[in-house]
Structure formats: structure tokens, C-alpha cells
Nucleic acid binder design. Sequence first.
RNA 1: GGCGGCUUCGCCAAGGGGUAAGGCAACGGCCUGCAAAGCCGUUAUUCUCCGGUUCAAAUCCGGAAGCCGCCUCCA
Length: 477
Amino acid sequence: MSLKVYNTLIGKKEEFIPIKEGKVGMYVCGPTVYDTSHIGHARSVVVFDTIFRWLTKLGFDVRYVRNFTDVDDKIIKKSNQTGQDCSVITEKYIDEFHNEMDALNVLRPVVEPKATENIPHIIDFIQMLIDRGKAYHVDGGDVYFSIDSFKTYGKLSGRNPDDMRAGARIAVDEKKKNPLDFTLWKPAKPDEPFWESPWGEGRPGWHIECSAMSYEYLGESFDIHGGGKDLIFPHHENEIAQSEAVFGVQFVKYWIHNGFVDINNEKMSKSLGNFTMIKEVLAAYSPEVIRMFLLSNHYRSPIDYSEDSMREISLGLDRIYAFLERLENAGVKVDASQKGELWKEFSLAMNDDFNSAKALGLIFESVKKGNRLLDETGDTPKDDILKTLVLFYNDIKAIAHILGIFLLSPSSYFKFKKDKGMTAMAIDPSEIEDLIQQRAKARKNKNFSRADEIRDLLQAKNITLEDGPEGTTWRFE
RNA sequence: GGCGGCUUCGCCAAGGGGUAAGGCAACGGCCUGCAAAGCCGUUAUUCUCCGGUUCAAAUCCGGAAGCCGCCUCCA
């Protein structure tokens, strides 16, 4: 059973064979910390977190690196606007990012390097490029990478430099030898943060930090490099140029890119004003619903964020937890010693380019099968059926640790939902219990119109009653 | 203009040479005082369209239409 990964470099799936047996080096482009993170950042982070977990589960020793871009034009702009020091701004958004990712149950990478803490490495890297004739320093202090010095430029994005009429949309800097040459080091303007360098006071361009830091923390050559689809060109193309121009060996073996999150079928964009921040989404839905949503489509496909899709995910999550609760009530206990058919199928799905969408489908199939067995045995399963149900429970719990969802106990999941609903509806649980008692009395006396009246009253507050053999339970919709 | 992707049930969505997963919604049934939950059944002989390859195509190839992304900061 081997892992297959879609590699942007060759445009198809291929078997995953790490450079060093048993070890995986993985670098993922993190955020530029000048503003609050949006749902698209969350997708990328959650997708690669899940990939990280799966690789680890497969037994690889994964060295996972995710950077913070903390020196950048947008940060400087914000600093000038607010009068705050750049580091105050970047620290604020790094904290926010960490808090939100923690909420989404994202594991911390092994290393989280910041550009500003790696300036000497970046300068060294640029110097190596200049020494090899791959970059040049011009009057005024800029250092550019020379596209013409790197024959295979364009191989990741499938672009031919000759076909690309650079400058069609932006003015070309006349100091560049080729319009496509990109900045490695730019001189500081007055009131901008800067570092001393052989080319004067300045700061690094965007692409170079990833080449320098990935080299520093993973070496000349490593296994996986990830990020959003939009980074393929120019960012990742330029990273390849920089790193391979210096070391002359293949930079990255597998390039993995995630698709976008659309909002109501539209791309998030400033002009549409539909940037949806993680904090907004967290205010509306539980982190678990958000994470399940982000994993509900294949990572390379676009995914559409809308109230409807979130409602559906939320119902699905309820269904799964309700099943787990039913298992527990039927005396099924987790016994992690064995794994069943579901885990096997799940492994196949994850090994097929991390197909979490398929994986969720498999869980629902098992929920249906399990519910059927519980129905058939009147919720008192024995012998083989009990064993089968134990395996379902084991497998779902094992999957929970990979997908990062279904990790709560069913009782705390439903309690949390109730607490949230009661706060929202400003209702007290004793009030609800009291009404349920009244209704029980009415039902006993065959006063069904009064019983239904009470039920309707509660339903109006989104509280659904469920009459079972052990009495009446309730939940928020 | 260059490059890449997508089009599968009312909606969302997996599959990507061997005869259509799953979720939501809807309808019928079991259960229930009636409901809810759960289960059973029904809902795509068919995967945008037109050709081709093959014993066999939603899946491969060619063409058409529609939609989308990147090429500018962007996950």
C-alpha cells in the first residue's frame, strides 16, 4: 500500500518515495503577517496539517517547516499608517494566527522561521547567487535574479519566458536585464526598516526568504513544498530558480498546492469586499465544523463557503457524534488494539493523494451500517455484532486523530452545543426540564394537545424533543 | 494573448478504462399517541455536447460550448 501524491511539477499523481528513507522534509509557505488571516489561509494550513499527520502516521519522521513572512511592503505600509513599529504589527498577527490555528486543532510545525530572524542566511544566499553569476547588483542598491542565467525557468508553472510579455501590466524597471528578473534585495527608503548588507542598507525580496530558510532548515534538497495554488507562479517558480541556481541539484521532489476557498461561488477579493476572516467564521461555527468543512472537498479542488454548506456540514457532524453516543449507550467501548475495515478503506483514501473527502464519505457509510446493526439488535449488541461495532468505534477514533475532528466525547460535544444554544436563546436548562416534566405528565394523562403545545413551544426556541424508552431527551438544532 | 483547471442526481460531492460512494433535500414505509432520531425503499442505464480508440469510456484521444484560476499582492 503506497502513498500517491499529485505533483504540480509533473502534473500528475506519482508514488511518494522520500529522498532519505523514513524521513520527510516538508516546507509550507505561511502567511505574511500584516493582517488578520482569512478562511483561505485556514484551508491551506488545515490541509497541510492533515498531510503532516498522515505522513507521521505512515511512520515517516517528518521535519515540517512553515515560515512567517514578517518583512514586506504591506507590513511597512501598515506601520506607516498606524505609527506602530513593524515588529508590533507582525507579533500581533503571529499571535492571532497561532490562536486561531490552535482553535482549529492544527499542530505546530517543527520549525516556524521568520524572515527577520534569518537575514544573515538570506544575505549569504544572495551572495552565493551573485558569485555564481546568477544575480546582479545594479546602481541604486537593488539585486536582481537573472532569469536568463537559469535555463529551466518556468518548469513548475509550464511557462516559457520567451512567451511571457512581462511588463504588459506593470511598468518594467529599466535596470533589469530581462523584464522577468525579480528582486532579491531592495534598498531601504527613508523611514523603512533595513539591514546592513554588501549592497547597502535594505531588505530582502519576497521569494528569497523561502529559498534561504528552506536551505537552512531542510537542506539543498527536500521532499515536499506546499502552499496555495496562487503561489505556483511566480513565487515557487522563483524559489526553484534561486535554489537550483545555487546548488545545482533538484530543489524539491514533490510540489503540493491547495485550491481556493470561494465565498458564495465568488473568489475572495478586495473589490468584492468578501474577504472572510477566520475570526468571523469562528464566531459563527464551532472550530470542528470549520475544520470538517475544509476537509470535505479534495484539497486541490475549489471549495465554496456559504451558510448552506456550513449548515450541511454541521448536520453531518451531529449525525456522526449521535452515532458515537449511541454506540457508547449500547455498551460499546473503545479498544484501540484492533483496526477494522473502515480504517483500511480510510488508509486507501488518504494514500490516494490525501483524499479526505472520500474519507468522510466512508465514515458516513459506517455510521449507516452501525446504526442498522444497532436497530437490529435493539441497541443491545452481542458477540460478533458487538465486535463489529467496537471496530467501527476504534476506526472512527483513529481517523479522528488524522483529520483532527471527532475528537470530543459525544457527551461533551452535545453539552457544548446545548450550552451555546442556551446562551443564544437566553434560556435556562431547568426551565426546559420543567416543561419536559409538565409534558410527561400531560402525556401520561393522554392530554396530547397540551403535550404537543409544550413541544411546539420548545421547538420555537430551536429545541427538539426526542422521546425514547428511557424518557425524553432534548437538543438544539 | 500565454499557462492551468473544471462541467457527475434538485443542491453539495467522491470516482478518473470494467459497468455510478457519500451528505443535504424530497417522497413512501417501519417505529411513535403524534413527532423527532434511526432504519428500509424510491430519486443519474447515466456522468455538458460531438466524434474517435477499445471487447469495455463518466474515466483515454480529438473537437465544440460554458464556467473558473494564474500570468499584479494574494492561501
